[in-house]
Design a protein around this nucleic acid. Structure first.
Length: 932
RNA sequence: GGACGGUUAGCUCAGUUGGCUAGAGCGCCUCGUUUACACCGAGGAUGUCACAGGUUCGAGUCCUGUACCGUCUACCA
């Protein structure tokens, strides 16, 4: 017999098992023999999933290669691991593909920062040198996060780790670009983009986050050119751009300014005559109703400019400094500095009317955290492919969102989708596979030029005569690589020898589409929607069948986790303190379906405590076995389902035995349902209640009464084994380490726990029936009565501060039927209520009492009863009861209820009423007996 | 401005097609080391289910409106 430590100690257990799993190749996703041809049969139902060899694939949302694990990752990856481990237990071919993202802007920024510290810039190194430096940096600092995931127990197929800049993956990225280019989905064009003056690159709309900013709304006045001395007032938050103004706009319907139509104003500096233009876009209600138009530096203004053929004057440098030599005192100044100076300048000229405090929303670069600058520039754009299909697959349920409501957000975005700016002025990334003939001026390329293969070459491998060409400098948006992830990781667009291509094809055929994607709702647009479009475009099939949105982790006060607040615990510390299993379970228990999750450490304690409880229940199981006369099988023989069920002796089953197994079946079935709907909080709830309340608090306690009986012990231990084995199996996906340890300790299977198929509730039921055990559902009711009896008895004792005393005597006044029940369970009732004796009586006077479902229990106090307290207690209970009785009676006498409500509801109501009435009557008798 | 979500015990949240005297965990109070577990056990207190209407035999659950909170979205300078 093994001896277990008194408390569960996760550290050594976790290390031991993870190493064993890895070296045994447990996580490897291997194509079953002949899998590709089987999968192409098409009809394999992976949703029912019971078929052996049936594929269950998940691809990780690739974290930034240089990132570190935070609480959000913990939740997200725990979910993926649970799904993968469960799939293995179901006998499916399961795979979880890990990988990392090169994170273009983030990584480049960090490498540049490092260079700056060394007094260098990227220009000193040149493009090639810089990329080498970045790779070095990536390889040094990168991949930490994947190591950390191992600590969590993540069962990824590490041999397949993919990085978005890997050769094969890069090839896929370029191939996708080329294909879309050829189909006419990609074009180059001069447009307004979100320009990041810090990273010096364009950004997609999704990378811009709006933040409220405190500033000023300046009211200034421009003189009407045709009417000297007459002015119009204009409100602006950005006076520093007025050098770029090429018009002022008013709404054509604005009566106040009709007299100005066709006139001009004087722009103060550099002084120029600029026209009034009439544009519906101008909001008459806002400010003075006059809008300065700066086509080069504002999106809306740009559009107005287009409509009215206005000149575009760019007065900012790419890094956000004023570029306007004509205004000496502003030239070269930073945009924010220039804003102040421009206001002062206006004031000096007597043109500043007012300056009021003002808060407005300003777009910030998500990565660099500086205000973006709308800027006209040449960029590459993508018209998204398969937009309509992408909507359709979510509407018709080919892809299901959990919770479902996120599909609204998704659809809304697709309705209003804009072309995607996919070029970035960076070096770290996939360089756009476009080559221009040497000598061409790229700024002057016409649409016709772009389509002329003698001038512009687009291919994965580049032109045959590279010396005559120059490659595009821009790289692709990182998301324009990760949107291919669900098939890119399996070698899509593989190049090389035939066997490599064939392997990729077979892999894709088997693993694609993936089963589920677990991610945060914050990247629905960035990633989820784009992957769906890419999947439909390149694979002609959705990339995943289910999308599980996990909530955003916040701290206990509901604030976002952030480095600056210091409210983000290091997951590794938590693992150190509470164990990976505890952390996983704790996260899952508090993870409601897709809402925000408020995290605090005591949640993880819950998980840890649960593990310890499981540990001790198992420990107790082993201790029981050590008693004389116990079964003496060696551990390896204790365990298989067949061995255990063979030890059951159905003839010896009492109500508790029936009830615990019936509840076990119910728990298993609830557990299965919770996985179907990805309601993991339900999963943990089910396990927690069954294991802690039903099994530990009741059945194990009941077992203690049977321990002395050689006749009953064997069957009782077999039932404990069945429950423990099942709980361990059910828990395994959630808490893999402790369950593996216990699995091997008990010898419940021959190998690793996941190698043994978990029986379904139906299979378990059948296995029981196979050995003659059919469960009596009525036993559950009987056990509930026993529990009520014990609760009432304990309550009585506690009321008189005798909870700890174990030699009190209870007198029971009950009818014949209840007496029989009590008598047949008397020993355990006595033990559980910690009584010296339970004696039957026909009548008892002057003792505190409680009315249980098995009769009225009196506590023998040898006459010293606190009458007033007793009466108060009874009255309180009666009040609640009477309220309920009245309600039910009213309902039952309501003819409409009786004729409309379903029969079972009415029956249940009648039964409740009868029970309540009986109890109330009993209580009244008691009260009368006390003189109340 | 639009869309979506939330409002249930001191705290965090369950509550699945309307059908219990509305639940759990934590926290709090009392008691306790009895054949696992103090990371535990026993007992206890605690609710106008945000508010106002409506539908229904019956509403925490459905409908309408209001208030507050949150998230996403939007070119009001």
């Amino acid at each position: 017999m093994s001896e277990l430590a008194k408390a569960y100690e996760p550290q050594s257990v976790e290390e031991k098992w993870y190493a064993q799993w890895e070296s045994a190749g447990c996580f490897r996703g291997v194509l079953p023999e002949g899998a590709a041809s089987a999968a192409s049969g098409g009809a394999t139902s992976s949703d029912t999933g019971a078929t052996a060899g049936c594929p269950h694939s998940i691809v990780i949302p690739p974290p930034n290669v240089t990132g570190v694990l935070h609480m959000g990752h913990i939740l997200n990856n725990t979910i993926q691991d649970i799904l993968t481990r469960r799939a293995r237990q179901q006998g499916k071919a399961a795979i979880w593909v890990p990988g990392t993202d090169h994170a273009g802007i983030a990584t480049q920024t960090r490498v540049e920062k490092k260079l700056r510290k060394e007094g260098k810039t990227k220009w000193d190194l040149g493009r090639e040198g810089f990329i080498e430096e970045a790779k070095k940096w990536r390889d040094e600092h990168g991949g930490i996060i994947l190591k950390q995931l191992r600590k969590l127990g993540a069962s990824c197929d590490w041999d397949r780790t993919v990085h978005t800049l890997d050769e094969d993956y890069s090839r896929a990225v370029l191939a996708a670009f080329v294909e879309l280019y050829q189909k006419g989905h990609i074009y180059r064009g001069k447009r307004m983009v979100n320009w990041c003056p810090k990273s010096l690159t364009a950004l997609s709309d999704e990378e811009v986050i709006m933040k409220p900013q405190k500033g000023f709304l300046f009211k200034m006045k421009y003189e009407i050119a045709e009417r000297p001395g007459e002015f119009v007032e204009i409100s602006t938050t950005r006076p520093e751009t007025l050098m770029g103004d090429t018009a002022v706009a008013i709404n054509p319907n604005d009566e106040r300014y009709k007299h100005l139509h066709g006139l001009h104003v004087i722009r103060p500096f550099p002084e120029a005559k600029i026209p009034f233009v009439l544009d519906e876009h101008v909001d008459m209600e806002f400010g003075t109703g006059v809008l300065k138009v700066t086509p080069a530096h504002d999106r809306a203004d740009f559009e107005i400019g287009q409509r009215h053929n206005l000149e575009v004057i760019d007065i900012l440098t790419p890094d956000g400094k004023v570029n306007c030599p004509a205004v000496e005192d502003l030239h070269g100044k930073d945009r924010f500095e220039a804003r102040k100076l421009a206001a002062i300048k206006l004031e000096e000229m007597g043109l500043l009317v007012e300056r009021e405090k003002y808060e407005n929303n300003v777009g910030f670069s998500e990565r660099a955290d500086v205000p973006i600058e709308p800027r006209l520039s040449d960029q590459w754009w993508m018209k998204y492919p398969k937009i309509e299909e992408a909507k359709e697959v979510v509407r018709d349920g080919r892809i299901k969102f959990y919770p479902e409501r996120w599909s609204k957000t998704y659809l809304h975005w697709l309705e209003n989708i804009q072309d995607w700016c996919i070029s970035r002025q960076l070096w770290w990334g996939h360089r756009i596979p476009v080559w221009y003939k040497k000598g061409l001026d790229r700024n002057e390329l016409t649409d016709a030029d772009l389509k002329d293969p003698s001038k512009v070459h687009v291919s994965v491998n580049g032109p045959a005569d590279p010396d005559n060409w120059e490659q595009e400098d821009d790289v692709l948006d990182t998301w324009a690589s990760s949107w291919l992830w669900p098939f890119g990781v399996f070698g899509w667009a593989a190049d090389g020898d035939e066997s490599k291509k064939a392997k990729a094809l077979a892999e894709l055929e088997f693993w694609y589409p993936t089963q589920a994607l677990a991610t945060g709702p914050d990247i629905i647009f960035f990633w989820v929607a784009r992957m769906i479009m890419a999947g439909l475009e390149f694979m002609d099939e959705v990339p995943f069948k289910n999308v599980i949105f996990n909530g955003i982790i916040r701290d206990a006060q509901g604030r976002k986790m952030s480095k600056s607040l210091g409210n983000s615990p290091d997951p590794l510390d938590l693992i150190e303190k509470f164990g990976a299993d505890g952390l996983r379970l704790g996260m899952l228990m508090i993870a409601p379906k897709g809402a925000d999750i408020l995290f605090s450490e005591d949640r993880v304690q819950l998980g840890r405590n649960f593990c310890n409880k499981l540990w001790n229940a198992c420990r107790f199981r082993l201790m029981q076995e050590g008693e004389p006369g116990a079964t003496t099988e060696a551990p390896a023989q204790r365990g298989s389902l067949e061995t255990i069920t063979a030890r059951l002796e159905s003839a010896k089953f009492d109500a508790d035995d029936h009830a615990i197994l019936a509840k076990l079946l119910q728990a298993l079935s609830d557990y299965e349902a919770s996985f179907e709907s990805y309601e993991f909080n339900r999963t943990t709830d089910t396990l927690y209640n069954f294991f802690w309340n039903d099994f530990c608090d009741w059945y194990v306690e009941v077992s203690k009464s049977k321990a002395d009986s050689e006749e009953l012990r064997g069957n009782c231990l077999a039932i404990q084994d069945l429950c423990l084995r099942s709980v361990i199996q059910m828990l395994h996906p959630i808490t893999p380490f402790i369950t593996e340890e216990l699995w091997s300790t008990f010898g419940y299977g021959d190998g690793f726990i996941h190698e043994t198929k978990i029986p379904t509730s139906d299979e378990l039921k059948a296995a029981l029936a196979g050995v003659g055990v059919t469960l009596d559902q009525a036993a559950i009711v009987e056990v509930e009565k026993l529990q009520d009896f014990v609760n009432q008895a304990r309550g009585l004792k506690a009321q008189y501060s005798l909870a700890a005393k174990n030699d009190v005597t209870f007198f029971l006044v009950a009818d014949e039927a209840d007496r029989v029940v009590v008598d047949s369970h008397k020993e355990k009732l006595r033990k559980l209520s910690k009584a010296g004796a339970i004696e039957n009586r026909d009548d008892v006077q002057n003792m505190p009492a409680a009315v249980s479902q098995l009769g009225t229990i009196y506590l023998d106090l040898a006459g010293s009863v606190d009458v007033e307290a007793e009466i108060a207690k009874i009255e309180k209970e009666l009040a609640g009861l009477d309220k309920a009785i009245k309600g039910t009676e009213a309902q039952l006498s309501n003819e409409k209820f009786v004729s409309n409500a379903p029969a079972e509801v009415i029956e249940a109501r009648k039964e409740t009423l009868a029970n309540n009435k009986a109890k109330a009557e009993e209580l009244r008798k008691l009260k009368a007996g006390l003189g109340g």
